[in-house]
């Protein structure tokens, strides 16, 4: 019954394949053939990012400052700059400001973004136009928004003080008063970023099936309760990814602060690690010292990213 005619023996005969064939096959395989595609960008990026980090670390171990080239001789390499930074009050107060900025900015942005996302998810008319308006500040350069807020916070004629005068508090020196300045900066940054968190949350909300909502309604839950008990817990993933972006931004925020004054020194009370680092490097020429501060910044950023990437990896979404 069965067809057993064979056209060819199937005993493996690998030995008949010469090495030339194997080499040709290897050169033809996808990994090798596709390597120029990912390899060239990877090389360029690798040199820029990882070469840069390595170079930066090397400089941070020297004592380089001023115009001379860094001295990389082994005897000259130590962690002096790192300990020096930890002992400096400027560094510590910048780190403290940075921490406040990171926590307050991230928390409020997430909450406000979530609130706005839920608001826009209620079947509002002109939904997309409203979303576009809320997201608009995000499309602008920090240099530009800093100018706008500088004007709003202006002591004599700015919008903020017109409001405070109207309610009888009297003018406030929003940028000049060191104990208020950081708050003013955070407020402006929240204005710029909450549209972004809103978009992330909206994407999360829209990915939920409608029937969850309907089921909760059939069960008699109120809208508020439905959100708190059913919808918001499912926004964990959106929250985590938005929080990572915001926190990393809070660490490296430099432009907005610089652009407020147009000088290396940001308004008193708002100096953060990023501004301190740039000032030490490009104003004072303390290359090694600023490189060490940059390394601290990098470690802090990695401390945010690494758990996130690991979390993503565990979720299988890398």
């Amino acid at each position: 019954m069965g067809t057993t005619d064979t056209t060819e023996s199937t005993k493996p005969r690998t030995e008949e394949v010469g090495w030339e064939t194997k080499v040709r096959y290897f050169l033809n395989n996808d990994l090798v053939r596709s390597s120029p595609y990912w390899g060239i960008p990877f090389l360029l990026m690798g040199i820029a990012v990882y070469g840069g980090i390595g170079f930066n670390t090397a400089i941070s171990l020297t004592d380089a400052r001023g115009l001379g080239a860094p001295d990389y001789s082994l005897s000259n390499l130590d962690f002096e700059m790192y300990t020096q930074a930890l002992g400096s009050s400027a560094f510590l107060s910048a780190a403290q400001n940075n921490l406040v900025l990171l926590i307050v900015f991230t928390t409020i942005c997430l909450l406000l973004g979530l609130f706005l996302a839920i608001l826009l998810d209620q079947g509002i008319r002109y939904n997309n136009t409203v979303q576009t308006i809320y997201l608009l500040p995000m499309a602008l350069s920090f240099v530009i928004t800093a100018q706008v807020w500088l004007w709003i916070y202006n002591y004599d004629f700015g919008l903020m003080n017109i409001i405070t005068r109207a309610v009888g508090i009297g003018p406030v020196d929003w940028i000049g008063n060191p104990s208020i300045a950081l708050g003013s900066v955070i407020f402006a940054l929240i204005w710029q970023f909450s549209g972004y968190t809103m978009v992330v949350y909206l994407a999360g909300l829209r990915s939920l099936p409608d029937d969850q909502f309907e089921a909760a309604h059939v069960d008699g839950a109120s809208t508020l309760k439905t959100y708190i008990r059913i919808i918001i817990p499912q926004m964990k993933e959106a929250s985590v990814s938005a929080a990572v972006v915001l926190m990393v931004f809070a660490l490296k925020a430099f432009t907005f602060l610089y652009a407020l004054t147009g000088r290396y020194r940001p308004p008193n009370g708002t100096d953060i690690l990023a501004t301190l680092m740039v000032r030490q490097a490009f104003k004072l020429g303390k290359w090694a010292y600023s490189a060490a501060i940059a390394t601290y910044l990098l470690i802090l950023a990695l401390g945010v990213i690494a758990p996130y990437l690991y979390y993503q990896y565990r979720q299988g979404s890398l």
């Binding site: 990026m45 990012v49 840069g52």
Partner: peptide, 21 residues
């Protein structure tokens, strides 16, 4: 891929001094 991802979040301050040099 992870190397690319870290590149996204890199605080540029960490490469400024080398870049200038």
């Amino acid at each position: 891929l992870v190397l690319f991802l870290v590149g996204i979040f890199l605080p540029y301050q960490a490469v400024l001094v080398p870049l200038a040099r």
